[in-house]
Computed example of a mutant assay.
Amino acid sequence: MYSRILVPVDHSDTSAAALAEASKLATEQHAVVRLIHVIDLAQFAWSANEFLDVPQLQASLKEGGEKLLQERVALLESQGIKVESALVEIWGGQIARTIVDESSKWEAHLLVMGTHGYGGLTHMLLGSVAEGVMRHTHIPVLLVKADDRPAV
């Protein structure tokens, strides 16, 4: 049913919980998993650039993203899951739209991602990448909260 599962990953507990669910599904469905990590290289470029070494910060974001992907790929491969990965760089774009675009390009059948489940003022201030994905995608999305779930 779901032979191509896209999973956006970051360093959060919710991302780890989503990856655990995706690995269960991938094993059951004999699916290929594509992991993506989105980095916004513009996040430091617009402010405080006279105080910060922006190129160094951007290089650090890339390095950290690549390391995260390598660790997650190794984890899934150790479980016998076929896995691909991509570091996706954006410049001030919407992360949610980028995830949806990547899922379309890769022709994903399912998107599995973590959500913090914030509500009220926190949601209003921080927004929700998961909500943005839900608003723009045409494929099924499995949202996973980290509550009492084992980390991957």
Rank of each mutant, 00 (worst) to 15 (best):
A86K: 13
I139Y: 03
G64W: 00
S60A: 08
L111M: 12
E50V: 14
V133C: 07
E107C: 02
L41D: 00
L125I: 12
G64V: 00
V54A: 04
L61N: 01
G132M: 10
T122P: 02
I139P: 01
V141D: 03
G119S: 11
K67W: 09
A45F: 01
H123K: 14
A86F: 02
E131Y: 06
K67L: 10
G117W: 06
E50F: 13
V83T: 13
L52G: 01
L126P: 01
A108F: 08
L87K: 08
H123W: 09
E63K: 15
L68C: 10
E84V: 07
E77F: 03
L41F: 00
T98E: 07
I99A: 04
T122M: 10
R97V: 07
G127A: 06
Q56T: 12
G127M: 07
S85Y: 00
V88P: 00
L57H: 06
G114R: 09
G80E: 12
A96Q: 04
A86N: 07
S78Y: 03
R97F: 02
A48V: 09
G64P: 00
L69Y: 05
A74D: 15
G132E: 14
G117L: 15
D40Q: 14
D53A: 02
Y118G: 03
T115S: 13
E50Q: 13
L57M: 08
R135G: 06
R97Q: 11
V133N: 04
I139V: 13
S128V: 10
L69D: 04
E63P: 03
M134G: 07
T137E: 11
A108T: 08
Q79C: 02
L142I: 02
E84D: 12
L76A: 11
Q56I: 01
A48Q: 12
K82L: 12
S104C: 03
D53E: 07
F44P: 10
M134Y: 01
E50R: 12
V129F: 12
L61P: 03
H136V: 00
S85V: 04
T98V: 04
M124V: 09
H123V: 01
